[in-house]
């Protein structure tokens, strides 16, 4: 087909495509596209932000914190008494010596009524228990103090 440049007319040019595709391309294309679309639809659902869920989480955290506070605080007070009952007297004494607290110091803090109530023992019984001779007692009494008391 001859075309003179001077008389070039686009409308007279046959509308043919110069491009080609591999054999069977349009037979396979729908399957390849479908494979991609089905792969995309099987995606894991996204967890999106929700104002209601955020507020619910905050409320739950606050409730746990309040319950934790009222549950744990009383337990901390009772821990001392409960655990001390399980500790041996020798260990407590050892601890007090280690802390530089002498026997005289803590005896001063003991409430006498508390001791007598808890032991429920008469003075005479105490003396019997101690197995002290009357001579030992007389030696230990400051006679001057006795005279003053009389």
């Amino acid at each position: 087909m001859e075309y003179s440049s001077n008389k070039f007319d686009l409308d007279k040019l046959p509308k043919e495509t110069v491009f080609q595709v591999p054999d069977g391309y349009f037979e396979d294309l729908p399957m390849r596209i479908q494979a991609r679309t089905s792969a995309k639809t099987q995606t894991v659902p996204l967890v999106t932000w929700s104002a209601r869920r955020t507020w619910a989480s905050l409320a739950a955290c606050t409730l746990v914190a309040i319950l934790g506070y009222f549950t744990l605080m009383p337990r901390q007070d009772s821990i001392g008494e409960e655990s001390l009952s399980g500790v041996k007297t020798e260990d407590i004494e050892g601890y007090l010596v280690h802390q530089n607290i002498h026997q005289a110091d803590y005896i001063e803090h003991i409430d006498e009524t508390e001791v007598s109530a808890s032991t429920n023992i008469e003075d005479s019984e105490v003396l019997d228990e101690l197995k002290l001779s009357s001579q030992d007692i007389i030696q230990s009494i400051d006679t001057q103090d006795v005279v003053e008391d009389i």
């Binding site: 087909m1 043919e16 080609q20």
Partner: peptide
Amino acid sequence: LVSGEQIQ
């Protein structure tokens, strides 16, 4: 994958 007349 391109062919055709020279004018095209």
